[in-house]
């Protein structure tokens, strides 16, 4: 037996460990097997043969990533199962683990691309009325993103008392970097809270919600009115308050009320004064 190089050994083992059907089946099929084969480098040591020993790593690999995805997308799993009455979600997880290998040292970030993968790979298989399921995946991705992102402290509270109304009207604002806004045919915030109890969407209405980390550090998922959603979208794009009022046809009083709320709950973090 020729001694394999470390490089050949690692590439072969990676292939054997990540084969969905296990090492023995993989080697028997020999499809895409890296050469040289390193099977004989692994010791057959009863009571387990070499393939059973490799499969201990294989099972742990799939289980670890599956458990991780379930920990990040628990509500999506429940809703896919509830709506589709099939193992579609499990299949998507399995396909993702094999099809989009992790390249990051931090397993916590592995799930960030999962919603896009699902949309790309399953959208044609889902009836159109269930397409909101991808939105709940997106909401859970936003929750993950909010947990993983660094947030600066809120600077606006100390600046606000120093500003007059005119200055405020022309100012632009920095929002919390974790803020994401989502529109969907489902009431995502309610479904996210009670995936098994809330009524499923019946179509015709668009719901909006925001996801962000508040000043206590907790991640908030909150339903928004269409007007609040529009204002926040304008704020995010860098509009000044006065412009927002005109473009969204919202009264200054209403905007002022939201503004106070968004400063208090951490959505608005800082103010950029016009010079």
């Amino acid at each position: 037996m020729e001694t394999p190089t470390l490089e050949a050994l690692q590439h072969w083992l990676k292939w054997a460990i990540t084969h969905p059907e296990g090492a023995k089946t993989a080697v028997a099929a020999a499809q895409f097997e890296p050469k040289p084969s390193c099977a004989s480098s692994v010791v057959n040591a009863p009571p387990l043969d070499r393939f059973e020993r490799i499969d201990i790593y294989g099972k742990a690999f799939f289980l670890r990533l599956r458990d991780y995805l379930l920990s990040v997308f628990p509500k999506s799993k429940q809703l896919f199962d509830r709506v589709l009455q099939s193992d579609a979600f499990d299949m998507l997880m399995a396909e993702y683990i094999v099809g989009v290998p992790s390249t990051t040292p931090n397993i916590d970030t592995f799930g960030l691309a999962f919603p896009a993968f699902c949309r790309d790979n399953a959208s044609t298989k889902l009836p159109n009325e269930h397409s909101w399921l991808f939105d709940i995946l997106e909401l859970e991705r936003c929750v993950l993103f909010a947990h993983l992102s660094a947030c600066g402290e809120s600077l606006i509270k100390t600046k606000l008392p120093l500003l007059d109304a005119e200055t405020l009207g022309s100012a632009r604002f920095t929002t919390d970097p974790t803020l994401n806004l989502i529109g969907s045919s489902a009431n995502l915030a309610d479904l996210w809270r009670s995936p098994m109890e809330e009524a499923l969407p019946s179509g015709g209405t668009t719901f909006y919600c925001g996801v962000w980390r508040d000043l206590s550090g907790e991640v908030r998922v909150q339903t928004l009115s269409i007007a609040a959603y529009t204002c926040l979208t304008a704020l995010l794009s860098g509009c000044a308050v006065a412009q927002i009022s005109i473009s969204t046809q919202t009264t200054q009083t209403q905007i002022a009320q939201w503004f106070r709320e968004w400063v208090e709950n951490g959505i608005i973090r800082d103010i950029l004064l016009a010079h």
Partner: peptide, 20 residues
């Protein structure tokens, strides 16, 4: 080693105990 070829298997994989 935890991966190769730019991929991370997030598993603690054994090495051969060789001079190499």
């Amino acid at each position: 080693w935890t991966g190769v070829g730019g991929e991370n298997l997030h598993d603690l994989l054994p090495l051969p105990y060789t001079m190499d």
